[in-house]
Write a protein that binds this DNA or RNA. Structure first.
Lengths: 332, 332
DNA sequence: CTCCCCTGAACAACCGTTTGTGCAACCCCG
DNA sequence: CGGGGTTGCACAAACGGTTGTTCAGGGGAG
């Protein structure tokens, strides 16, 4: 900037004002302004965001923390969020925690170190110390995917209950009466909501179902839990999984037990992860628009950054039943 | 830091030295050091990376630019890179360009604005103006996935030629003689390499093959190109796609033409994207370890940042043939 | 006992911007 | 022609650290 100022024959403060469009205030001659812009362009000058941030406190950086960047479901969310942030000139810092609170702690610390203006937090647990720390420091944060016991924090969540209801009703309409549930991790809000909605929906129909929790949302766990459930309730004809990856594991387990999907056992997933229509069998699932979820979270975060006193708000993303090949009428 | 200094009864410079582990130089009493660390911990002090960066020029931030974050193949790379950067205390800024140079331009500009110390550049074109700009400014950059006409720049690339040879040999061993190639975008290095290797490998066997280029690496384009090729060469029994997504489109096109895969036409992809073993049919493809590619790129970038004069280097990631259900012996 | 050197910490400049304030020059009017 | 308002820009103090340099005090050697 000094170079630009010298070249244009003005003071750096003048350059600063011009480049910040404060020329409007009638403080600077049109001539001067034009000259400065000219020189800046010619010299290929680019403002040092770091220095500017130091002075203004605005870094135009936001952080996003997810269990695993490589997870397809998260990837769609990242995309939606990225587009929104990009449009507002923000840069996105990304971190994977492997669903490990220690990782989360240090990743978040690094983000706050670079003075991220706000955080999208996608790894919330029911009682989340890391999250509590963020809130304590007064950093704007919006949860997504998972809620937490933290009042005053905005969140964008899938409508777990409605989605689960859609799934159960679909299975019931196919004549299934022996339905089990493969739940997600026990201390994740979605897992709890989905289980509750599962039992409730069955109850309405006068049925009861078994369930087990998976420790992580991965195929192996879906396999393990489903194997257990099938052994425990051999008459099972349908599996509702809390998540598509668990559903894939469930299908594997069903096959490993000598049954076939969907002829013997139907499977419903949750999320509609990319390419689930190409799986074998194509996965019947509850679609949550990942792009929309990411974009809405990002918008909410930007609003919270702009107005920290903004009242917290929880938005639900509407689910949609997508019927494909992994569900069939109950065998007679 | 001022607070910490005051609380510990020392000057801020002393605090700074302690926190930077310069105490080793025998400049500070063990007593003082301990006291300062204590206070810092108690006050929950965290260094302001921004201010530090302003002074030292080291932001501990690197940028990564990819065509699409939501792309599964990229996601694995991101993961590998993220792990390496994380271990070294770096934060990762991510940007999607949609494979659009204008987007790339502004995204890169934003990254340089926050003084990213280096860039992982995954959207290189044969003649890439944006890339040239980066190099001009002397910013350390390492290409991945795609090479460019830019001497002096390190890159980590899939071994396109070897991978393609593996794929062609596989098809030849199955008795295929009418093989077509669905190429990627024409000005992307991998597309060119794969096409050349394709023709060469066929030539060795005394065959020739047709090909067309896709404009983008997406299913729709694979569909379009394959449809054209099938019409042009109805006797085709095998399709080699430059990429898994193109391969998926190819399978769609084969089915749409009334043929079946792999009975009538075999398909080989490239990359081994996540879940390709679960597709219908499971995809025969050339595996490139995405995690390794990302991790190696990241390491190379860190080395280049540490020593900008480091001679450029191109690393190839070894490919591996993964035979699954989308290839079968040539029909008689 | 004096001098010197070493040790341990304080001092202050600097990184590149932003922004409140000061200060000339100019214009207009009486 | 002089005085009060504007206008257009320069000045300088922050922002929160880092780091070369200075400085005081203490211990050891002569």
């Amino acid at each position: 900037m000094r170079d630009v100022a010298k070249e244009a024959g003005v003071h750096v403060s003048t350059v600063s004002r011009v480049l910040n469009n404060q020329a409007a205030a009638g403080r600077i001659t049109h001539d001067t302004e034009e000259r400065i812009r000219d020189v800046a362009l010619r010299l290929g000058y680019r403002r040092n965001t770091i220095a500017r941030a130091l002075r203004t406190g605005r870094t135009l950086v936001v952080g996003m923390v997810v269990p695993d960047v490589a997870n397809l479901y998260q990837a769609g969310i990242t995309r939606g969020a990225g587009d929104v942030f990009y449009a507002d000139g923000y840069s996105l810092i990304l971190a994977s925690t492997d669903d490990d609170p220690d990782h989360a702690e240090s990743q978040v610390s690094a983000m706050l170190g670079v003075q991220a203006e706000g955080l999208m937090y996608g790894v919330a647990r029911e009682d989340d110390a890391v999250l509590a720390g963020i809130i304590d420091e007064g950093i704007p944060v919006v949860l997504f995917n998972r809620a937490a016991n933290s009042p005053g924090v905005s969140a964008v969540l899938p409508d777990d209950r409605k989605g689960t209801r859609l799934a159960v009703e679909h299975l019931l309409s196919l004549g299934h009466t022996n339905i089990v549930h493969v739940g997600g991790p026990e201390d994740v809000s979605s897992s709890v909501n989905r289980l509750e909605a599962f039992e409730e929906a069955l109850g309405v129909a006068g049925l009861t179902g078994s369930h087990h929790f998976a420790h992580r949302q991965i195929e192996d766990e879906g396999y393990r839990v489903t194997s257990d459930l099938l052994e425990q309730r051999p008459d099972t004809t349908a599996v509702l999984a809390a998540n598509d990856r668990l559903a894939l594991g469930a299908i594997d387990a069903i096959r490993a037990s000598g049954r076939s999907c969907p002829q013997d056992v139907s499977v419903v997933g949750f999320n509609d992860m990319p390419y689930s229509e190409r799986f074998s069998p194509p996965l019947t699932t509850i679609r949550i628009s990942q792009y929309e979820l990411g974009a809405r979270t990002a918008r909410l975060l930007l609003e919270t950054i702009a107005d920290p006193l903004r009242p917290a708000e929880t938005q639900l993303v509407a689910p949609e039943l997508v019927v494909r090949g992994s569900t069939a009428p109950a065998p007679i």
